[in-house]
């Protein structure tokens, strides 16, 4: 972003990478897949790079409003200085925070989730899916992220993408408004669960496996971690894969 601004360019959209997209070994692959798609299509975009910090979401949900606002205000200062108008992110938590919670602190942007962005690219014919490759005819189930689904009512964009891949979309019993959480929201990602009978991600993974799907599609870095761990817990990592939507699109495009 700094580079583009120095050259007097203003990108069409800011890609908010998020902490998982920047640091998590597994989720970096999702960031890379999404960027490759954007490059291939020729979308004018920028990232903040080292100028980006955590949106503050987990701090806020864990109760630390000071820390949240410190992060948020700093981020808003940076984005406003660059006159950012539109933000796309692959993380539903960042999506929710920037879209719904930054306006109260002076950050007003059009914010969309990468599933919505990809769906638009597909609809506009900019991304042409081969409808073949690795996923053709396979059964795939989609795990709704709470912060995309119930929190923001985005249910269809991810499903449209999966359908465009020419695969068989199989729904879990608890899906869309009734989708079961992966167990990581509300800052649970950063601590051990309270004591109970079972881990939430195992419960959810069992439900996903019961559909007979060969792949579980997700649209959230935390869900990706939790579902991948769940599949490992069930010793099914050899035959069931967990993918982010952007990875599936990139694979289909052969990039």
């Amino acid at each position: 972003m700094a580079e583009m601004a120095a050259n007097g360019q203003s990108p069409e959209v800011l890609f908010w990478v998020g902490c998982a997209g920047s640091f998590d070994e597994r989720y970096k692959a999702v960031t890379q897949a999404f960027v490759k798609i954007l490059n291939k299509v020729g979308v004018s975009f920028a990232v903040l790079g080292p100028e980006e910090t955590c949106t503050g979401d987990p701090a806020r949900r864990a109760g630390n409003e000071f820390l949240f606002q410190m992060q948020a205000v700093a981020n808003i200062q940076v984005m406003n200085a660059y006159e950012v108008k539109k933000v796309v992110t692959a993380c539903p938590h960042c999506f929710n925070t920037i879209k719904n919670e930054y306006p109260a602190l002076g950050g007003n942007y059009e914010v969309i989730h990468h599933s919505q962005f990809l769906q638009q690219l597909i609809n506009e014919g900019k991304v042409r899916l081969q409808g073949g490759g690795e996923f053709k005819g396979k059964k795939i189930t989609f795990h709704d992220s709470c912060y995309l689904g119930r929190a923001n009512n985005v249910y269809e964009a991810p499903r449209e993408i999966i359908k465009a891949l020419d695969v068989e979309l199989v729904e879990m019993k608890r899906c869309k408004t009734k989708g079961l959480c992966c167990g990581a929201g509300g800052a649970q990602m950063f601590k051990e669960p309270e004591s109970g009978k079972k881990d939430i991600n195992v419960e959810r993974t069992e439900e996903a496996l019961a559909t007979g799907a060969q792949a579980i599609a997700v649209g959230c870095p935390f869900c990706l971690t939790m579902m991948t761990d769940g599949v490992k817990n069930k010793n099914r990592e050899a035959d069931v894969k967990v993918y982010d939507l952007a990875e599936m699109v990139a694979k289909d495009m052969g990039i």
């Binding site: 990478v17 920047s22 998590d24 080292p50 910090t53 864990a62 820390l67 992060q71 800052a187």
Partner: peptide, 26 residues
């Protein structure tokens, strides 16, 4: 997690300067 966010601006303890490293591979 709060401490990580205060010092490294991320809930995980990573160096903020490494935030853009993913781009090398692209």
């Amino acid at each position: 997690m709060f401490q990580n966010m205060e010092t490294s601006f991320s809930p995980w303890k990573f160096s903020p300067s490494d935030r853009f490293n993913w781009a090398d591979k692209v």
